[in-house]
């Protein structure tokens, strides 16, 4: 019996996980989500910015991380547009262009914002650290044209912006190591306030930067996105995803306990 349970078909486990995700989504039961201090720091920073301030959002992710980072981007954009903050988007990941441009423009449209006046998407540039240094020297040299081919020097949204230090706030949404690059080559060199959103996988690696105040706030994984949705009072996909997330976590804990119990029982039997 124990041997049979130890060698259980892995597809049975996959089926249980699929059910643990699907049933809570269909049953629509909600578990409370409370915003943590690290996510609140980003929210309060943006909330404190006066009208027509400039925020730079780096969409450094691609569709593989869309499920975790796109809800963060959407929530941030809703907050910025509500506060009449001018949004400048860019990406260091070629796969991020489609996601970024659709989010910036479609959410901007909801709030009646104008392309080039209230928001701009600068597009993709290769080089990561070199792009940051170039933007720190002169943003128009790094991005002479926006994603749609308009000369950036003529865009009203960039009035008052010459380099990275002119931004009131910078947020990096990252699925890779770009947050470290933004810290080393952006924040430390040009002294702007930096917040970050990242996938849950790299979340633990980012906490030391919160303690050293190199990041003013951090949204980590789907939970970070859900917390931000709660703060802006606009519950969407991230909040909806937290109930299945909790159920699956309980299931994984049960699997771990079950696996260990069976292992020790089989060892004793031998």
């Amino acid at each position: 019996m124990i041997e049979r349970l130890i060698n259980i078909d892995r597809r049975f486990i996959f089926l249980l996980v699929a059910m643990a995700v699907t049933i809570p989504l269909l049953a629509k039961f909600n578990l409370p989500v409370r915003a943590t201090k690290d996510v609140e720091s980003i929210y309060y920073k943006i909330d404190s910015l006066p009208k027509n301030s400039h925020i730079l959002i780096a969409f450094d992710y691609d569709p593989a991380s869309k499920e975790e980072l796109q809800p963060m981007a959407d929530a941030l954009l809703h907050h910025c547009y509500r506060k009449d903050i001018k949004v400048v988007g860019m990406t260091l990941n070629p796969g991020g262009t489609g996601l970024a441009v659709s989010a910036i423009e479609s959410i901007g449209k909801e709030y009646g914002k104008t392309k080039g006046t209230d928001f701009v998407f600068l597009g993709y540039k290769t080089g990561v650290e070199l792009v940051m240094i170039n933007m720190g020297e002169n943003i128009f040299s790094a991005f002479p044209e926006d994603f749609h081919g308009n000369a950036t020097i003529d865009l009203p949204v960039l009035n008052g912006i010459d380099s990275l230090e002119d931004f009131d706030y910078v947020v990096d949404l990252a699925s890779g190591s770009s947050i470290e690059a933004w810290i080393a080559f952006g924040k430390e060199k040009y002294g702007f306030d930096l917040g970050a959103g990242c996938t849950a996988v790299i979340g633990p690696d980012m906490y030391p930067f919160l303690q050293s105040k190199q990041l003013n706030g951090l949204m980590s994984g789907l939970r970070g996105a859900a917390e931000y949705e709660i703060l802006i009072d606009r519950e969407s996909t991230a909040v909806a995803g937290m109930s299945p997330q909790s159920v699956v976590h309980v299931l994984v804990v049960l699997f771990v306990l079950f696996g260990n119990t069976m292992y020790f029982m089989s060892k004793r039997k031998r």
Binding site: E67, G241, Q245, V248
Partner: peptide, 23 residues
């Protein structure tokens, strides 16, 4: 352990996103 927990959360988030898309 913390890294493992976060990794589980990340992978499940991807699954949740796909199932949300399907249903």
């Amino acid at each position: 352990g913390a890294s493992f927990g976060y990794t589980v959360m990340a992978r499940m988030s991807l699954l949740i996103g796909r199932i949300q898309f399907l249903i």
